[in-house]
Amino acid sequence: MVWSFISRTRGRGRFDVTDWLTWGYLILGIVLMFGPVLWVAMSSFKTDAALSEYPPSFLPFAPKTVMVEGYDDPLPLYEITAGEHRGEVLAQIRRIGLNAQMVDPQNPAEKINVKIGDRAPAREFAMAFENYSKLFERFNFMRYFWNSVFITVVATIITVIFNSMAAFALAKYRFRGRTTVFLLIIATLMIPPTINLVPIYLVVNELGLVNTPWGVIWPAVATPTGVFLLRQYMLTIPDDLLDAARMDHASEWRVYWRIVLPLAAPAIAVLIIFSVMWRWNEFLWPLIVLTRSEEFTLQLALNAFQGDLQTSWSGLLAMTVLTLLPITIVFALLQKNITAGIAQSGVK
């Protein structure tokens, strides 16, 4: 069954070399594309101790510990692999040179000396959820998360409204200067904001928007991509519909909001997906505009933490996972629409 499913070839009924290569490539693809993300996700559940383990284990294991009478801290457990205590499980008190001073948890009074080569750490499966809870307690994670959500949602709403209004005007009205305006907007496709960083910063600064989310939101809401995408779609909406609405006492604003916008929904969905992706992942411009840490987006916070030597990998990994989670969920739900939308419009 499975075999016939996999070996479905171009109707030739033969599983030849190219099919082997194809499946080899696809499996390599899964490992290479998903593997790193999966590895980070796994690692994010490890305790700091397990993270510093080398070579690392795939699943989150933590060294087993035990409370032994007479000791304040929990002691790590070891299995003894050689020597007279072979097979026993002992707790280590301290290491002295090549020997370890150990104790049997059942019999805390007696101290045992074991060569360090004769013992292996006893481990247990343990998910370190505290990596995540720590984020909320210590790292002000919710603050950054909220900043990111706010910028993404507000910028996307404004982008959709502004772009669709412009697209409506360009698609459905004949007026002097229409071609000029359209070409002007398309021309800005050629001018990525990266080459205007300094003067855009001046404008944002003059408007008093530095270190506010609005400084990130406003400069990029008038996307030429969005205008172009929506205009092309709106051209396919028949003019008769708009005329019918006008005969039905609809003002131009009502024609736009009640007729054109709902009918352009497929194109708007594509723009929403793009806009969410752009804004959630945006890095360079927020990096320039937002310098106070309480205004940081998730991306900036991640970047700041990874540069900070005090930060442990455990927190960083958990934060990475939380940052990629929303996009991953959206992707899992809308995979088809996203890939189709991108293939059609050729924009990212």
């Binding site: 008769d240 519909l241 005329d243 019918a244 609405a245 007729i259 709902p262 009918l263």
Partner: peptide
């Protein structure tokens, strides 16, 4: 209208 122009939504 010739195309009826019914609001499809």
């Amino acid at each position: 209208f010739q195309s009826y122009a019914l609001y499809p939504h």
